[in-house]
């Protein structure tokens, strides 16, 4: 049955997936086992996205399914179990810019690929990035931006991280809209990524995950 659940989620059959979760609970399947199946399915979704078979609709729908399943299971679980993670990534759209579609895809892909993602949202000030890096001890920072104004905001954020004495401890990647190698140099980041797969590969390389 757990195989059927994995397939239902991975193949975007929402109603069937939620029905199966309820049925499994009624039959006494351990909530943890159900959650594991859901996570296995999310990894498949991430894989299919990486292969260019899935896109935004599938990432959003699978995310919806996972959060609905977690809601169903919550009362049954004393606390949500910790998952082993490769490393921590602080991510956000830089100050002045409120675009978040690209950033959300990157967050999703980092999460399903085993990273602990601290998503600061949009219009994030350099100070907020600095504070989050300090608090979380993140090894990787992702700066996102869609508008041309984001180039300067990214540059200011990198400077603020330097000023706070944190630059040595983190790798910084940038992405979004018009970002490329010229902008990476301008901003002073370590790398840029054209898509979410590039972000995952960069983060993996930096934290030494497989």
């Amino acid at each position: 049955m757990s195989d059927r659940l994995v397939a239902a989620i991975a193949d975007m059959r929402e109603e069937e997936a939620l029905g199966l979760v309820r049925e499994m609970l009624e039959r006494g399947v351990a909530p943890m086992a159900i959650l594991d199946a859901a996570r296995e399915a999310m990894a498949i979704v991430g894989q299919r996205y990486q292969e260019g078979r899935y896109f935004l609709p599938e990432l959003l729908l699978s995310g919806e399914m996972l959060s609905q399943i977690t809601d169903i299971l919550k009362p049954e679980l004393a606390r949500l179990p910790e998952v082993k993670r490769h490393g921590k990534v602080v991510i956000g759209t830089v100050k002045g810019d409120i675009h978040d579609i690209g950033k959300n895809i990157v967050s999703f892909m980092l999460d399903v690929n085993g990273f602990d993602v601290l998503d600061l949202g949009v219009d994030v000030s350099p100070e907020a990035f600095v504070a989050a890096i300090k608090d979380s001890q993140a090894q990787v920072v992702g700066l996102s931006g869609f508008l041309t104004l984001a180039f300067d905001a990214m540059r200011e954020t990198v400077r603020a991280i330097e000023k706070a004495g944190l630059r040595e401890g983190v790798k910084i990647m940038i992405g979004g809209g018009q970002v490329g190698e010229e902008i990476r140099q301008y901003v002073g980041a370590d790398a840029y990524g054209q898509d979410a797969m590039a972000a995952v590969a960069l983060a993996r390389g930096w934290v030494g995950a497989r």
Binding site: Q178, E182, I183
Partner: peptide
């Protein structure tokens, strides 16, 4: 590209 117009 806008990026080129900005930083090129």
């Amino acid at each position: 590209p806008s990026a080129l117009l900005k930083v090129g």
